[in-house]
Design a protein around this nucleic acid. Structure first.
Lengths: 172, 172
DNA sequence: CAGCATACGGAGCTAAGATTCCGTTTGTCA
DNA sequence: TGACAAACGGAATCTTAGCTCCGTATGCTG
C-alpha cells in the first residue's frame, strides 16, 4: 500500500516490516505480497521521490533567473524530503548503490538540472565547473544535516552556505 | 589492541566482531576483555580522532592568516579521515548521539576552533554568522561524500564549494 | 617442578528481524 | 446456497551478529 510505504519512510529505514504492516493495518504477509522484499519497498519509495524532484525541477526550469531556478530546486527538494528519514538515508547512499529501476527517474532529473545549471553558468551566476554530479553531492551533504538533526532547521544554514559556495567566485 | 580498532575502522562500522578479532590475530574473548562492548570500541576510536582534530587545529591556530588556518584545519582533518569508513559514519552521527567520554576532546576542539573562527570573522574573511556548530555541520556533509564515494577525491570539490560558501559575502 | 594466577580462544547462547507458509476469511459465479 | 479462487493474517522459521562462558595455555613464584 502507498500509505504503508510512507509510514515506513517516516520511521526511518530500520523500521521493522512487522511494524510497517501493523501501522498500515494489514498483516505481514500482505506487505510481502506487494513488495517481494524490504529493499523493493525502499526502492519504490526512492523512485517516487526522484520523480518528485524531477517534477520540481521541471516546474522551475523556466524561471527567468537561472540562478533562482537552481536555488529554488535545491530548497524545494530539500523541503520535500524533510521528515522522511528513510529517504534521507537512501539518498545519502544513492551514489553508491545503483537502485534497480531508479535510473529512469534519475536520468530525467539529470537532464533538466543540467540545463538549469548550464543556463546559470552561462549567466555567470554559478561557478563554471559546477555539474549535476556536484548537485547530488552537496544535496547529500545537506541531507546528512537533516538526517542527523531531525526536526531542526539547521539544514537551511547548510544550504545557505552551499548556495553561496556554488556562486561564481568574484573576479579579482 | 590499538591495531584491532584500526582494522575495524577500515572495514566500516558494520564489521563483525569475529572478523575484527580474527584480523587482529586474537580470539573474540580477548577483544571483549579489552572493550566490554562493540560500542566501546567505536567510542575509543572516535575519541582518538577527535583528539587528532584538536591537535591539527592547535598546530594551525597561529597561522598568520586566520582564513588559511580555517581552511587548513578543514582540509587536514578531512584528509586524516580519508579511508576510515567507521569514523566517517560515526562522525556523521556525532551530533546526534552523545558518545560517552568524547565530550572532553570535543570541548578542546571547540575552544580552538572558536578562536580560529573568531579571528577569521574579525578579519572579514569569513561570513560573520559562522560558528563551531556550522563547522561540524559542513564537515559532516563533506564526510558524507567521502563515505559514499570511497576512494574518490570528490570530497575535495565539496570542500572547495563549502570553503567558498563560508567566505564573507561580497559587500554590495 | 608444583601450585596458583592471569589471559586466551572460540563454541555456543540469545536476540532481533526478515521472510515463508499454510489455515482462514472474503468475494464471485452459477 | 455451494464451490472455487483470490487475498489475508500472523505464527513459525531461518539467519545473522553480538556477547558469554568455561576449559586451556602461559607465565610467575617458591
Amino acid at each position: 500500500m502507498a500509505s504503508g510505504r510512507e509510514l515506513f519512510a517516516r520511521d526511518g529505514p530500520e523500521a521493522q516490516m512487522d511494524e510497517i504492516a501493523a501501522r498500515a493495518g494489514v498483516g505481514i504477509g500482505t506487505v510481502y505480497r506487494h513488495f517481494p522484499t524490504k529493499e523493493a519497498l525502499l526502492t519504490a519509495m526512492v523512485r517516487d521521490r526522484f520523480q518528485q524532484f524531477a517534477e520540481i525541477a521541471t516546474l522551475v526550469e523556466d524561471a527567468v533567473d537561472p540562478r533562482d531556478a537552481l536555488e529554488t530546486v535545491m530548497r524545494r527538494s530539500a523541503e520535500a524530503v524533510e521528515g522522511d528519514a528513510g529517504f534521507q538515508l537512501a539518498m545519502m547512499g544513492s551514489n553508491e548503490l545503483e537502485w534497480e529501476g531508479i535510473e529512469e527517474q534519475k536520468a530525467v532529473l539529470a537532464a533538466v538540472l543540467t540545463r538549469i545549471i548550464r543556463r546559470a553558468v552561462d549567466a555567470g551566476a554559478v561557478r563554471d565547473d559546477f555539474t549535476f554530479e556536484d548537485f547530488g553531492m552537496v544535496m547529500c551533504g545537506i541531507t546528512s544535516t537533516m538526517y542527523y538533526k531531525p526536526g531542526s532547521a539547521d539544514w537551511r544554514r547548510h544550504l545557505a552556505i552551499v548556495l553561496h559556495g556554488v556562486g561564481a567566485p568574484a573576479r579579482p
